[in-house]
Design a protein around this nucleic acid. Structure first.
Lengths: 254, 254
DNA sequence: CGTCAGATTGAGCAGCTTCAACGTATGTGG
DNA sequence: CCACATACGTTGAAGCTGCTCAATCTGACG
């Protein structure tokens, strides 16, 4: 009645960037999930705006996005999720989904009933803080996206996004050196960056011409990290990859 | 050694939109704050990017903004805070500030030492969930801003923002019927909406010409709520103003 | 081989920017 | 009390970024 260790591994890595987990805690976390995994095809919804989920979903394999569709038909992606991310942990404290989550690729997910999270809340302050922190990291990324959308040009924004995804994938061991999967179409990028698909195409061409990246068949290769980070004015501070940032490690030793 | 009830009132109202608080809980919350309040002048920083606060700040009076300044000198505001909002509750789980918070007007604040929040985390699952929920509401607003920035025109975005601020002020009793203070300059709005101050001016003129709002001397009057909400494609779902949205009320009765 | 999703290109256009000037209210020192 | 400074709002004009529309190209797949 619990997740296998290797299935929990990506989440554990994300957490342990900041705070070590004890064996007991890993066990509690593993038992919070339903043992059976769910596989969902590409381009399907995992949760829909208006839903009131009774369980939260952890992404184990594949890429997913949070999005909203406006009256005018435009879709805006508000978050891009990679393996190891909870895609709707916020539905535990706040049940009503105010946005949808859809898959980009085929995805494998594990689900944790809210009742299990409730138990963690009532019995483990440390794990509670860890879960809370995960939602706060989402927030920090959201803010960074607002900055990028509001104050950067399209090409800078695109460079910024690529830097962010690269580091996030690296944390969970899914990026090789300067190379990582990004299985999204230019239309998806358009809905993420808030620009048209045509313009995405031109921006990507510029990034290629500047020899900052290659991007073919859903794989990004970063040719010049320095240049890319500079173009995107990228600073990894908001990803909080250093363990001295975090209260869990300092105030609640494992 | 605790905040006066009326000083806590705005926060309590925000919380009780979704979940009732017991007298005991109010007491615990009140005692989490330092008794003395702090007054900060207009256009000063309350917290700075790079800081590692040891206490979290509750805004009692005045308006404040979260923001980041880019290399190119552009300032992007990522959140606008009104009385009753925590401006840096996330610094409890994640110490390093990845953005700054500044005042727009003179502000009165109360501070809660992280040690007090720690005590709440260790002793009161229900209050912990409530605090967690407050940070998650910030997240929901962030996502809505991403949608507005990415998929709306400037005039729609502006209308959307005004709708949002109006409802948030109403919750804490700071908006009269269709009328509320918005002590920001057009340059502030520019940094919020991610457009130039000149264009803000033109957008406001359009909103006035369409007889949707008046906006003089830092006071907004909504002349046509329906029209404004339609223009801004505004839906209050993401503000989670209904108590059936929330887990606290349902699973952890006071 | 035809079909389809996705990428690419060109051309004209719209939204928003920048620069610069000017208006208006408020405050301040002489 | 006036001269001047300062902050904020308003207006016009020119230009750039990114959009829309439409056509073409490419590769995968049945």
């Amino acid at each position: 009645m619990s997740l296998f260790p290797q299935q929990l591994d990506l989440l554990v890595r994300r957490i342990e960037v900041r705070a070590p987990l004890s064996e007991t805690e890993r066990g509690v976390l593993a038992r919070a999930f339903d043992p059976q995994l769910v596989t969902t095809g590409a381009r399907r919804d995992l949760v829909r705006e208006g839903d009131r989920p009774t369980r939260s979903t952890l992404l184990l394999r594949g890429f997913a996005v949070r999005y909203r569709v406006l009256d005018n038909g435009r879709r805006q992606i508000t978050a891009l999720h990679v393996p190891g991310d909870f895609i709707d942990l916020q539905s535990f404290p706040l049940r009503l989904m105010d946005h949808s989550v859809g898959t980009l690729t085929e995805c494998v997910t594990a689900t944790a009933p809210h009742a299990s999270l409730q138990r963690i809340l009532e019995t483990s302050p440390r794990l509670t803080l860890i879960l809370w922190t995960l939602t706060i990291l989402d927030s920090a990324v959201h803010r960074e996206w607002i900055v990028a959308m509001g104050a950067m040009q399209a090409i800078e924004h695109a460079a910024h996004l690529i830097c962010e995804i690269y580091l996030r994938l690296k944390v969970v061991g899914l990026a090789e050196h300067n190379r990582f999967p990004l299985p999204v179409t230019q239309a998806d990028l358009a809905d993420t960056l808030g620009i048209s698909a045509v313009h995405v195409n031109r921006v990507l061409q510029e990034l290629r011409k500047a020899e900052l990246i290659r991007f073919e068949n859903g794989v990004v290769e970063i040719l010049d990290w320095e240049g890319l980070a500079k173009t995107g004015q990228f600073d990894d501070k908001h990803l909080h990859l250093g363990n001295e940032d975090d209260a869990t490690a300092q105030r609640l030793p494992a």
